[in-house]
Design a protein around this nucleic acid. Structure first.
Lengths: 147, 147
DNA sequence: ACCGATTTGACAGCATACTGTCAATTCAAC
DNA sequence: GTTGAATTGACAGTATGCTGTCAAATCGGT
């Protein structure tokens, strides 16, 4: 079954991507996971609480919780009072966090460009389509067992 | 950049696949990772030492080492003397291990078939091709930093 | 045969993701 | 308004993967 082989490709690609991401942002004192959280915070149109970010990223709430706590400790994000919920603070970038995001962008672009050269954008689109279909079915079968 | 979006798809597909795999083999007292190791051992034409299995799977030697140790403890594999290397034992399936592999196969087929229905096999091939290209480039840039 | 480089497993430690549980808080139904 | 359900963060524990280091064993060049 060709699909089973694709699964192995996904496993390895995932591992290599995380490792490469770690290397890429290591000079900034970041890791792949924290980079992703920071990016999600930066992309959001408005500050969000932790649980909201987790749903955005498709991760468990507590995984993001720990990463955010660590980013707070590192001074890259800060928690502001949420007028709509006393316990659920809003995650915001600090000045230092904004600088980090900017630095990441400068590193990220040539890296992605290098990986993309020679890759047919149409094929990339097809790959993304296959993965998304897969994700939908897996999310169904996994059901609401997340968090 | 479409490729960046594909990365996120890979991350999520990977997480969902591992979660689904865990659920699939949980009735057998296995996990996704142990299942993969067991499968690699079962597929090998001849018994291999741990380090060889790790290279087969594209994982770090020590990751596989721990999983194999746990599988030994669970009675699914056993370590036999290696005539070519005194310390490096050969990993072999036990009878219980062979039964587990057979049970897994019965579970796996309908699961994969269900995921595959309606997915164009040509698109699957393209997705695999894209991921493999990606993997090659990532492996290059990551260089020999593994293990 | 010897000596250095490599491979291998053992041990220890870290980063990430998951789960389960709990109390505080908010939300919704009535 | 009150009460039960859902959300949220804190805390604790597990599984997987990585790295680094060490000693034993093998391999290779001389």
């Amino acid at each position: 079954m060709a699909l089973s082989a694709l699964f192995l490709d996904i496993f390895r690609a995932n591992a290599l991507l995380v490792a490469a991401g770690d290397q890429l942002v290591a000079p900034l004192g970041l890791t792949s996971a924290r980079w992703q959280v920071l990016g999600t915070v930066a992309m959001a149109p408005a500050p969000q609480p932790v649980a909201h970010i987790a749903r955005d990223m498709g991760l468990a709430r507590q995984s993001v919780q720990r990463l955010v706590n660590e980013l707070v400790e590192a001074g890259l994000v800060e928690l502001r009072e949420n007028p709509h919920h006393r316990r659920s603070k809003l995650v915001c970038l600090t000045d230092q966090g904004r600088q980090a995001v900017a630095s990441i962008h400068k590193l990220q672009r040539p890296w992605v460009d290098g990986l993309a050269t020679g890759l047919d954008s149409e094929k990339i689109a097809i790959a993304a389509e296959v993965l998304q279909t897969l994700r939908q079915r897996l999310a169904q079968s996994t059901d609401e067992s997340s968090d």
